[in-house]
Amino acid sequence: MNFQRASSFLFILSFLVFGVVSAQLGEVAGPVSFNVNISSSQTIQLNVINSGSSPISYKVILPQLVAQQVNSTAPNITSSTPLVGTIMPYTQFPINLTVYMPSGNNKPGYSWSGVVQVIETTNQTQAGGAVVQSGVAKIISISAAQPKPLNPLIYVGGIIIIAIIAAFAYKKVILSKKAAGKGATMPTSLYIRSKNGRISSSKPKKTRNKAKKQRKRVTSAKKKAPRKRR
């Protein structure tokens, strides 16, 4: 009876110990391949799973990329997810990785590979020997693609903006010319001397048409006026 009790106690204890020390980190399977246009970036989400009933402290180690070609410029890898944190129990935790492909010496088809590591961090210390940490690793591959062609909409938008600016500029010039025509540079008054010697004046703000009309009036009056016989 005592033996049974002891064995059941040991079983429970071992289960508890195993539950504490065993890592519960997992990952969603599948290759992670970036195909990044030169001078552009691409973001891909990795999913790490905590299948355990307690939170897991983690640390992300971004890869040291191995180039397949010599004289290539290594892409820049960043994570918008904090590199250190905690994953809640029974949670699928997303890690967003962004790869920027610099132009440098890169040509389409150049490729790199590396391993992203998500390691369970523990406060365990070992007085001599090796501390074993567990985690998940995702092998990633990156390849360079042709630079993105500029979107034709950008060209069209640019042309429209230029046209609008030109139209406004033209309108402004016309308005300023009109304003100038209304008398800003005209003499303070316009004197019209008719053939019969009369002098008529028009206000400067009046348009030339008005002056013309006045001139017409003068000429018509001259026509109407009877000629003096000598």
Partner: peptide, 16 residues
């Protein structure tokens, strides 16, 4: 349900 994998280690230290 995606494909997933997990791995756990039997102990967290090796004393040489």
């Amino acid at each position: 349900v995606p494909s997933t994998c997990f791995a756990t280690v039997s102990n967290t230290a090796i004393n040489f």
